[in-house]
């Protein structure tokens, strides 16, 4: 009897299974096709310039010489710096919301933090131009360079015009903060009560409980949320373009303007008419794709390792 009823349902089952399999496979297929397409379009530029494409700072559309080193450097530096600023803040917000906040405060604050993720990137960019950049130029940069006497160090040297790597990092930090914070909050909420109670029963203070029992338990999830933020920061285009100063130059100073790969593509694609220029922009896209893939694989591996350690 059981077998016939199974058999009766199996036509629908099979269609359902085929359909979902097709859906599931279509995503990796799309990714592979995209990668192939980008790589093929990038090939002429990569072939022409070779390794120099990754190491040269000369990006000259007039002479047809392209080197993307400043954009690659800028993308990585601005994103990592953004994470350095955003992670402590975001994890702090998440800990407060999951452990300390009174119930009446938790929902509104969580909602407002999540709302940061819903603001369009161009709005962040405008805010960056008119509020953040002047604030950095008139308050933060003089504070760092003169008051704290850091102006002599390579990190904070040079004239402070405003549009800079620092401005890009700060705006990125604000943009990735809600991603890190809301995922971390969910992860912390999912830590079993027993974990907390055990720590408290052993005489831990609240602080010790969070630091010693909750965070280690949730560490793989927190790490995952940071990587999610990094992925977002690497690809962010509009807001960064508006505040980074768009200069093809690698400078050690955070006050100096820089460039990112995504801004470079956004800036030049619409007016690039000659084939080599287009190909060079596609090559920048290919490098960005490769970096993003590497970051994600690395993240998977880290999360997996942390999880395994947790179980051991």
């Amino acid at each position: 009897m059981a077998s016939t009823s199974l058999h009766g349902a199996s036509v629908g089952d099979r269609i359902f299974r085929l359909a979902t399999t097709a859906f599931a496979l279509s995503i990796p297929l799309l990714l592979v096709l995209l990668a192939i397409d980008v790589a093929a379009a990038a090939w002429p530029a990569l072939k022409t310039f070779g390794v120099a494409f990754l190491t040269s700072s000369r990006w000259d559309a007039v002479d047809g010489v392209f080197g993307a080193a400043p954009a690659i450097y800028g993308t990585i530096v601005s994103s990592v710096l953004a994470l350095l600023i955003a992670t402590p803040l975001a994890v702090g917000v998440a800990i407060f919301l999951s452990e300390f906040a009174p119930a009446w405060l938790r929902q509104p604050v969580a909602f407002l933090v999540d709302l940061l993720a819903a603001i369009p990137s161009v709005v962040y960019g405008l805010w960056g131009i008119f509020v953040l950049v002047p604030f950095l130029r008139e308050r933060v940069m003089p504070l760092l360079a003169d008051r704290l006497h850091l102006g002599g160090t390579p990190l904070f040297s040079g004239p402070a015009y405003g549009p800079s790597m620092l401005a890009a990092a700060v705006i990125l930090a604000i943009m990735v903060l809600p991603y890190i914070s809301s995922v971390t909050r969910e992860v912390l909420m999912a830590v079993p009560r027993s974990q907390r109670e055990a720590a408290l029963a052993l005489g831990a203070t609240r602080w010790e409980m969070i630091w010693g029992a909750v965070l280690p338990y949730a560490s793989s999830g927190v790490l995952g949320s940071i990587i999610l933020g990094l992925g977002r920061a690497l690809g962010e285009t509009m807001a960064v373009t508006m505040v980074i100063g768009n200069r093809h130059e690698i400078s050690s100073s955070l006050f100096a303007p820089g460039y990112t790969m995504a801004s470079l593509i956004a800036n030049e694609f619409s007016e690039a008419t000659n084939d080599l220029h287009l190909s060079a922009l596609m090559a920048v896209g290919a490098v960005l794709l490769a970096i993003t893939l590497v970051v994600n694989v690395l993240a998977r591996w880290l999360v997996w390792r942390v999880q395994r350690q947790g179980q051991a």
Partner: peptide, 25 residues
């Protein structure tokens, strides 16, 4: 050219990007 290698300066996106920076600094 429509894009050249600028020896010095900051890049602003669009007329508004250039004008915005000039107005502020």
């Amino acid at each position: 050219g429509k894009e050249v290698q600028w020896p010095v300066g900051l890049g602003g996106k669009g007329n508004e990007g250039v004008a915005g920076q000039v107005r502020q600094i």
